[in-house]
Design a binder for these strands. Structure first.
Lengths: 250, 250
DNA sequence: AGAAGATATTGGTCAGACCTATATATATTA
DNA sequence: TAATATATATAGGTCTGACCAATATCTTCT
């Protein structure tokens, strides 16, 4: 690799892989590469950037770990750009939860601490368009009211969009990270009545937001989180107790 | 690679590189690999794990991005394990701050929101040993009271230790991430009187903690953060104004 | 003793081969 | 005709082995 256009970050990064990752990241951030688009193949990209495929791949691992891209195999596969703030901080985070170093309580202590703030900021900043976006999220929900996966995805997305409306990229990322960790810690818990109730609460929150009822929103939102917490704790604890009967030791 | 001991995460991860990364990560977390120790060379490790060096290196990039390891060149170089919660989330985060997508305000909005909570939890949970650890941090500070770098490191470490005492790994990681981003956004601002004042505040906080004066601690801590914010904002804004005279366009 | 240079160690990069999952088209069969 | 095999091409995943480059340490020369 001779030179990647310019130098980055004041002093040039050490490895080519880091430079490549930062360059692609910059282009994504600056919207020079559209979200959802597919980058050239590994071989092509490596060639374009004048680096070996190994270097390119190490760069991809970085971008992937930070959630900038998804990589899929096969034809119609490739390297896809996705919304930065819609992706987990790192695959390795999940492992933390799985190792028992992060508990449900840890997660909810943090959520209770700063998601209501996210909620407040979002309510203050929300434009009519934002509110509409939230409503749209649940517009087809009645048609899928028996589909737990559909509901779960909506309910997840709700929090992500909210963080986005807050206008603070850090909040977006943290929120997303927390939800990802939570999903892992809760062993991807899925329950229809539970998701239905969450949808109901969320839609109620949206309308309160539309009316800018700050206090009510905050109260409802805390209710939302606590409801989630209690349900999950019960399930997970029940799981833990039954664990002994399962063979897998790891 | 035939099999890495066991399978991970319920369903096996896709790539070997991810499996390797998770395996090494697990060993670090379980303390089977000591912090500070040096892993075998890339060639040796790849050989041990029955994977190619390429796969091993992609795994290293993941671990590095998540702060689990440091990699240095040359003899006496190699792969070093470091404290997970003492390292930045990712090199790419820094780039975000550098691109102006994350501002000082974003960072401090978040810090103000949840670091006081960290402070509270730490004060509640702190053992005598914890307090002593904090005092030790500043024990040699008088001898280095003219050394801004020394002070800066202590003041940084203070917040990290505090998050550790809180007992919530998520808070630790977020705190560290915020501080790393901040350092980048503030262009590694360094000023002697400023660091001296921070040291003073921190030592005061430690003594208030020792006496479990919750309210006083919280108040002092907020003061600490706001002082930091205001100082930084002034400096950074001044920097921004002078920017035009600098040639580098990037 | 001190400076200059040789050497060994370890990560960094490269090139090219082959493996594997998967979407799509084609052929086969009920 | 419609459902189901089977072939094929695409794009990532893995492997090998070579060579480059930074750096700590030892050696040699002044």
């Amino acid at each position: 690799m001779h030179m990647l256009g310019q130098s980055f970050n004041r002093f040039e990064a050490k490895r080519y892989s880091e430079q490549v990752a930062q360059m692609i990241q910059s282009k994504i951030i600056k919207d020079e590469i559209k979200i959802g688009s597919r980058l050239p193949t590994e071989r092509q990209l490596a060639d374009d950037l004048k680096v070996s495929r190994s270097v390119l791949r190490e760069a991809l691992r970085l971008l992937e770990a930070s959630g900038y891209i998804d990589v899929k195999k096969g034809p119609k596969g490739g390297i896809f750009v996705n919304n930065v703030f819609h992706k987990p901080i790192s695959v390795l985070w999940k492992n933390l939860a799985d190792n028992g170093h992060i508990t449900i309580d840890h997660i909810f202590d943090v959520r209770m601490q700063f998601e209501p703030y996210v909620m407040m900021e979002a309510t203050k900043n929300a434009t009519e368009k934002d509110i509409q976006r939230l409503r749209d999220l649940y517009v087809d929900v009645d048609a899928h009211f028996d589909d737990p996966v559909y509901l779960k995805n909506r309910n997840f997305e709700f929090h992500v969009i909210l963080a986005g409306i807050s206008g603070n990229p850090i909040l977006s990322t943290f929120t997303k990270a927390l939800l990802e960790i939570l999903a892992e810690a809760a062993h991807n818990f899925l329950d229809l009545p539970f998701e239905q109730e969450l949808s109901r609460i969320h839609r109620e929150i949206i309308e309160l937001m539309a009316q800018r009822k700050l206090t009510a929103v905050k109260k409802m939102f805390k209710h939302d989180i606590l409801f989630l917490k209690n349900t999950l704790k019960k399930t997970v604890e029940r799981d833990e107790t039954h664990k002994q009967s399962k063979g897998g030791e790891r």
